[in-house]
Amino acid sequence: MLSIKNLNVSVEGKPILNGLNLEVKDGEVHAIMGPNGSGKSTLASVIAGRDYFTIEQGEVTYMGKNLLEIPPEVRAKEGIFLGFQYPVEIPGVSMTNFMRTAINEKRKHQGLKPLSGAEFLKLMEEKKKLVKIESKLANRSVNEGFSGGEKKKNEIFQLALLEPKLAVLDETDSGLDIDALKVVANGVNMLKRKDNATILITHYQRLLDYVIPDVVHVLFDGKIVKSGGKELALELEEKGYNWITKET
């Protein structure tokens, strides 16, 4: 589904990713772990198409297409979802209106008819139940006045509504209490299908108690330095990142 080869990315001349390689196949859950500043969030942003970064070298292929040539909204319509680390507030824009616009844009892209107001509301109700999110979130402006945990739950709610092929969740677990963490994990698990994939970017092993990854990668200094099964996460938790950095 996603293939990243020798990706080199810089910001204002400063290299962030240095020859990163990653292969994600249908149905897989990947966890990317690494210390602060290792380039995790940059990777997520590059996949989603933020233009703040300069791609120096390398290729990213998604569903057989050169992803780097595709504008961010088209990537989204083609099934890429980024769960933001810091979801932005958009005052005055209701969640309902925002999501209905997003879903209907995607449907248009797929050649489907837009959902009517009633159909959309029904879908929202379904998804709310699925991810166990409080109704009130959907009635407010996008992320406005949400607590940190509410913002993250709201990302999962949007994930459920948009049903992406590839979800990249950037530290969606950080700053959550255990109940919110379960909501997030539950959402990810419920939405898992044979034909989609998830990349979990995380600093801690905690989330991986609830979402079992197929592969765990360690990102350090802009490249993946170690990959393994879910036991790698536990090992990391126990020994700390120093263990990896010493090893490399």
């Binding site: 198409g49 961010p72 909204e73 990537r75 989204a76 925002f98 616009t101 997003a102 844009e105 949007q158």
Partner: peptide, 15 residues
Amino acid sequence: YSLQRGIDMENAIGL
């Protein structure tokens, strides 16, 4: 944020 949800620039500005 809006673009990432698949909303194109024109609509995003409008929203």
